[in-house]
Design a protein around this nucleic acid. Sequence first.
DNA 1: GCCATAGTTTGGCGCGGAGCGAACTATGAT
DNA 2: ATCATAGTTCGCTCCGCGCCAAACTATGGC
Lengths: 233, 233
Amino acid sequence: MTKLESGEAGLESFAKIIGDATRIRMLQLLMEGRALTAKELAYGARVEPATATQHLRRLQEGGLVSMKAQGRHKYFKLASAQVAELMELLMVLAPARNGRSVEPRIEEPLRRGRMCYDHLAGELGIGITEALVKQGVLRQETDAFVLTRRGGAWFAALGIDVEAARALRRKFATSCLDWSERRDHLGGALGAALAERLVDLGWIARKRNSRAVTVTEAGWRKLAEHFPNAFDA
Amino acid sequence: MTKLESGEAGLESFAKIIGDATRIRMLQLLMEGRALTAKELAYGARVEPATATQHLRRLQEGGLVSMKAQGRHKYFKLASAQVAELMELLMVLAPARNGRSVEPRIEEPLRRGRMCYDHLAGELGIGITEALVKQGVLRQETDAFVLTRRGGAWFAALGIDVEAARALRRKFATSCLDWSERRDHLGGALGAALAERLVDLGWIARKRNSRAVTVTEAGWRKLAEHFPNAFDA
DNA sequence: GCCATAGTTTGGCGCGGAGCGAACTATGAT
DNA sequence: ATCATAGTTCGCTCCGCGCCAAACTATGGC
């Protein structure tokens, strides 16, 4: 054990990890909340995969991102909500230096409800997910949700073919870190099936050419029945 | 105007400013809340003054620290409470990488009340300062307090020689950013005189070999009379 | 005026580390 | 088995930038 102040030295090398343009760009890409592959991050941050590997290793060592290998892909995402908090603070403080710059405010409708790929995010997605957990339909694990026995029945009752979703060659019920809310919500095949079904039922509707999702007139009552206490606040 | 995305480029160069061991060390030194001179920061961060000048310039450009020239000294302090917030977040996240490390928790007594150089800080210092502002004894300016006309009488009534304090070759009534509370409190000659007088009156007492300050038995009643509503929470 | 001290500017040295291409392994598709 | 693709390892180049010494300016004390 070298004589190394764990506090100070830790902060210094941690700061170095953040203090690189490419790595910051990668973290920015991950702010959307979705898990990205190494290659996506490489090209997104405008470097070759070989270079990206090094950066991603350092980001992992710094506890800023977490990785999950799946087949020949490696999916990276922000390690915690605190990291997202840190990034947000950096983004707020940064432009102050660069002359005035209008704070890029999130459009309110998007904050309320939106599609994240093909499943629901925003307050709507989170409200629904948390209601399902509270009802015992889902159980939250480290980075995925598990459908309980009664949960299967619940989805079936809503008219969703759970087995079909399970058969798809994709993650079944992942937990996706929400960008605006910083909370986990249901993604994957099950999340997509649920979103699709709610649209089919006419409870929610997608705005044309937008990721925004709104609850329909009839939807409010129906959602309140099926997801109790989900939309109080 | 070059084609330069103000948002992205800003974040990247901002991150670079933070991502340097020496500059982080300087920011860490400033977390105490007191303004420090360029030289103090240089040696505190273990570099020569010539090097420190460069770093301090970049920290200023990045909006992380603010500077006030006073005579031949230049005093630096954190630019805002948000910067302190950022630093705190960095310090919380950093050690996670470095194996387990006990979160260096602030000792409770220090949080309650302590000496910051020669004036009062912590909840005690802030409570007193805010009570004085509310009573119209002090008025808060950008980075200093102003003693009002009635304020002079108030201090005199407490047995403090305001003119003597004003005559000293030092800042009279500065506002000092509190480290644990992140709020301004009264410093400078006036703050020191007040602290000294409260000790003389026996209302507060310093612990031996510590910066901790406690309120005496008799002190509680007296303080409550002179600083109404200062210690509710 | 003098000297002492705080801070800055400049020039040059040297290292850390970001970047890439090429060769490698690992997984999946056919 | 064969090919395609994801990601890694290695060796190398090269540039940014942190650092200091020395010479400079600015301020205060005498």
